[in-house]
Amino acid sequence: MDLIIGGAYQGKLEYAAKTYNLKQTDVYVCAEDTDIDFDKKCIYGIEEFVMYCLKRGISAREVLEENKPKWENSVFICREIFSGVVPVDVLLRTWRDETGRVLTWLSKEARTVTRLFCGIPQKLK
C-alpha cells in the first residue's frame, strides 16, 4: 500500500491520479454513511472512514486489519486533521485522536508515504 497524506486541499488526489494513473472509477471516496469498498485501487479519505467507524462503534483499525489482503497493493489517501485546536465536540475530538493512531499504524504498513504541501510532494518513507 502506498500512503498519501496532507492537509485539506493540498493536492493529494491530484497527485495520486497522476502518479498511479487513476481513473475516477478507481477511486472510492469514503463518507461517514457508506460502506468502504476495498476492491477499488484507491481509497480516498481514510479520515472519513474513521468517522464512519466511530459512528457505528467499531474499530477502524480492526476492519482494516481484517481486509489487509485486499488493500496491500492499494493507494490510501488520508487528510491530516491533528493540528489545530483540540475540538470541544467529543466526537470530533475522538475522531482526531483515532485518525492519528490509525494513520501512524498505516504509515508503518505502507511501502511508501508521501506528504503533499501546497501541491508539492515530499517522500517521507
Binding site: F82, V85, R93
Partner: peptide, 21 residues
Amino acid sequence: YIFGDAERYDALTEGYRHALA
C-alpha cells in the same frame, strides 16, 4: 497553513480555506 485541523466548518469558512489553498 490552516489545513490540518479536525473541525467541520460551515460552507463559507470551507470556501475560504479552499481559496487560500
